[in-house]
Structure formats: C-alpha cells, structure tokens
Simulated assay, not measured.
Amino acid sequence: MSFLQSLSAALTPLGLLWTLLIISAATFMHELAHYALARWQGVQVHSFSIGMGPVVFRRAWRGTEWRLSLLPIGGYVEIDGMAPEEFKTDGGEVGYRQATRGFAALPSWGKIAVLLAGPLMNLLLAVFLMTLTFTSQGIPAADRARIQTVQEGSRAQTLGLQPGDVITAIDGREIPETLQIEGRTVMGWENLRNVLGTPGPHTFTLERAGQTRTVTFAWQPTVNGQRQLLGIGYGPDIVPAPLPVAFQTSLTTTVQAVPQVLRAFGNLFGRFLTLNFSQDENVTGPIGTTEIVGRAAAASPWALVQVATLLNLSLAFFNLIPIPGLDGGRILLVMIGSLRRRPLSFSQEQAINVAGFAFVMLLMMFVVVRDVSRFF
C-alpha cells in the first residue's frame, strides 16, 4: 500500500469530522474559561475567536468581537494587557513595551487565576465526561475479569467457560486491584495474561448467574514450539455505579493519570531531544489521533466520549507544562516576578516567550513528522 493510500485509510471523513468537533469544543471551553476569569476581574477582552487564520464571521457583543475563523483548529482570546502595547517614539517610529493596564495591572493571584482557568476547565470537562460514562456504563472492576468471548472449539470451550463468566480468583487467590508486571503497574485482571504464560495446574474461581464455580486445568503455554491459546477474550468486569461513586472514581482516575501523563511527556521530550523517531503508543500525533477518533466513532458513542475525555486530559496537562508560551510557562513567569517583587523586563519576557514558542513549535513538528514517518 502506498503512502497516500495508507494516509487516506487513516484519515477517514468520519474521523476527521469528529476530531475537529472534539478539539474545537475542548478549545472553545478552554478559551471561554480564560475569557470568564478575565471579565470577572474587570479586564476587557477585545476578541474571542473559534478557529485560527482569516476571519469569516465577526460580531460585537458585550465589548468583545466574537469571531469565526477559517481554519477549524484551536482558537484564541485577546485579553487586554496580556500582549505588549504599541507606542510611538519621538521620531515617529512604532515600538513595543510592557503593557500597564488590564491583565498586566492584575495582582499575581489574578493573573494566575486567568491563566489557570483554561487547563482547569479541560480537567473539569474530563471529570464530567468520566462521571457521565461511569454513571451510564458502570465502573471497570480492576479485581475481576469478565470473559467476553469464547472461541469455537477452543480449550476454554472444552473446560465449559462461557461469555459472561466473571473470574474472581486465580489459583485460589483473589485478584488484586493493581500489581506490577514487567516494571509497570497494571490492573489486576490483566494478570490473567501472565498466568497463562506459566505452565502447570491452574484454577479459576468463577461467578455465573449468581453461583460460584471452580474450573481446574493443566496448562502448557507452548507445545512443540507453538504458542497455545486458551481461546477467550476478556476484560475488566463492569459494575453499576451511582452518581457519587462515579464522581469519586472519576477524581481518583484523574489523580492516578498524573504520573502516567508526566512519564509520557517526559518520554516524548527525551525522544525529541535525541531525535528518536521510533513510535510511542503513549503519545500520538494528529494523524494517529484522527485514526483513533475514527475507530471510536465507528465503534460506539461511548467510545467517542472516552476519547474526548482523554483529549481534554491531555490538553489540560500539556498546557500546564512550565514551558514559556504555554499557560504553565506564563504562570511560572508570573510566580518568578512575584518572588522578585517586580515583573521581568519587557526584553527578558519577550526573549523567554520567543524561545518557549520556538521550542513548542519544533516539538509539534517533531510529533507530526514522527506521526507521518510510520506510513513509510
């Protein structure tokens, strides 16, 4: 298959449409939070754009020009006093200097509130979507494995295993919620794969139609050099969850995701600095994201909601990275100025922001090139 054929197979119209809708919605809410916190503190917002590039529609409302721009990617708010202001020198030339009004005149906590509002909104959206999913679909039970499919003529069928059976214990021991496999933390139900890689007698304790059953069998992972399969598809058991439990689980899941996301971004930065273009399943580019969204849209609405949750989480955490040009970098500069008891000079802040913006752009180019390279 040629490069163009592979690319067109990944970028389906359905995937492109839903990717643009999800990212546009996440960006809109992100920028709306910046807007709301600025206006709440009496700071004027000159413009609010959905999309980037040339403006195709504009309307003034409540002191802000609301825009719809041509390119349906991202968006922005133009908050008074956040960008440098123009001035004319004695010679009539146009120069730039640090703004002294609007955002620039806010106390440090006010500036941080405006900057933090965007990522926090995406975080809240992710928690809301997770809560909605858990309430409607139930919560995955990490310590219980549900058999989803049983292959015809397989060893599992011979043993009497059936779809819907819930494995509650393996070899007489209850399944833990988490465990360490190959140096990483996984859910307890995933240990089933590890067990089936170990020869010898094994016992499954099952729940079926409210009754407990025990299945004992001898197992050899390989026979005559060929890998053996038990013949089941499985995943975590799903248990119903009332709203308070769903909300609490969403918060817990978000907190547990923090170290995983930090490791993923750390790995990405390491690959970027060493120009390592090998694929990484934890971080994907725009083509990979569109491919995932397309598969989710074709699978079910709830799969699409899960992808939207992950995208909002990623947007929140990425914007909080303390790199100048991102919200986290701007917050860092505000904190440095607060500790120094005077803001950075115009030239210092501009140099830092330009360097940070260049780094982010190079990082984005690296992600895109790595994303495209897998089709060659």
Rank of each mutant, 00 (worst) to 15 (best):
A141H: 00
G102C: 07
R208I: 12
G118T: 11
E207A: 04
L129M: 13
E177Q: 08
A145K: 00
W109A: 14
A141K: 08
A145M: 10
A141C: 01
E174Q: 14
T135W: 14
Q162E: 14
G153Y: 07
M187T: 02
K111H: 06
Q211N: 11
G102P: 09
V186S: 00
L116F: 15
L161V: 08
K111P: 02
I170Q: 10
Q157I: 04
A99M: 04
T185H: 00
A104S: 11
P199M: 11
K111G: 03
L159K: 08
T185Y: 00
N122L: 12
G183T: 04
T198H: 04
G95Q: 11
F134C: 06
Q162C: 04
E207W: 03
P199V: 09
P107A: 05
Q180G: 03
M121D: 04
G197F: 01
A156Y: 10
T198A: 05
V127K: 10
Q148I: 14
W109S: 14
F103S: 11
M121G: 06
K111E: 03
P140A: 09
L129Y: 06
L124H: 07
Q180P: 02
L115F: 06
Q211E: 15
E182Y: 01
R146I: 09
F128K: 00
G160F: 01
A113K: 03
P163S: 11
L132F: 11
Y96E: 15
E174T: 13
T212F: 12
S136N: 09
N122P: 12
G138C: 03
T131N: 08
Q137A: 13
I181R: 10
K111S: 03
W189A: 00
E93R: 15
A113C: 05
L196F: 11
I112G: 02
I181Y: 08
G160S: 06
L132N: 06
G164P: 07
G102L: 08
M121F: 07
Q211P: 02
L120K: 06
H202S: 04
G183D: 06
A209W: 03
D171T: 02
M130C: 04
G197V: 05
G210A: 10
G153F: 06
L159A: 10
R193H: 11
Q137R: 13
A169V: 10
L196C: 07
A113H: 01
G102H: 09
I139W: 10
Q211W: 02
T178E: 05
L129E: 02
H202R: 04
E190N: 04
E207M: 09
L161Q: 08
E207S: 07
Q157Y: 04
E182M: 04
R146L: 10
R146M: 12
L125T: 09
T131A: 14
T212P: 04
A209H: 09
L124P: 04
L132Y: 05
G197D: 08
F128T: 11
V114C: 11
T205L: 14
N191A: 13
T168C: 01
N191H: 12
T168R: 12
W109C: 10
V114K: 09
L179Q: 00
R193M: 06
A145L: 12
